[in-house]
Amino acid sequence: MATDTRVILICSGKGGVGKTTLTANLGISLARQGLATAVLDADFGLRNLDLLLGLENRIVYTAQEVLEEECRLDQALVKHKQESNLSLLPAGNPRMLDWIKPDDMKKIVNMLKDQFNYVLIDCPAGVEDGFKNAMAAAQEAIVVTNPEVSAVRDADRVIGLLNTNSIKPVKLVLNRVRPKMMANQEMLSIDDVTDILALPLLGLVLEDEQVIVSTNRGEPLTLNSLNSPAAKCYSNIAKRLQGEDIPFIDPAEENSGFAAKFRKLMQTKIF
């Protein structure tokens, strides 16, 4: 069906920066734009994408059974309840830890390419075998990081590996941005991170308590809390992926009133 499927790796190096949340929300956003989207959980040791999408009870088969021809691909794909354009495919079962090889990943992604416009691969943390398997089938990548030294350092390692494996374009999503801390210069700025990592920015996501609420419910924010700050950020990222020219939000604008004006004044460069 789809001839120009985009296969995008979502990776970070460090764990807990928001890869899986980004994958789930991008998946929903793209599906809402009418695009057939598959999210592939390549983190089968510690899989969580099913939980964030509220599909944890509906997994019967995984990519492993498909490869072993125990079931058909469409039996393993779990369609999202509300957003039928979105399907989840878990790569494997936590009980079977060492089955997958880079070639298996390529086979599965090739099968998905026939049916979907987008294949988003949720990468495991780390830079070892799990990452290398997930990377094998990807054409382009989104690196997720936080404005924080350890996350940026790990992202740099991952970018190095993506470069040596000729994956491009590689774009950056800066997650968990706290405008107030940035204004007080107690957090790396957006320019700091994009300069250090030398990557084009695909989007930034504001820190938002609603993210935790949405994971509690298993309903990604982009599904029905579109007014929350993070949800807007996620759907902007999805639109930019589709080539729309959406301006980046300015974290400084997120603070308003006198206090914000004062903080902005304090950022004035004297020399």
Binding site: N184, Q185, L265, M266, Q267, T268, K269, I270, F271
Partner: peptide
């Protein structure tokens, strides 16, 4: 150096 740095 920003204004904040000088005040600090």
């Amino acid at each position: 150096m920003t204004l904040r740095d000088i005040i600090n």
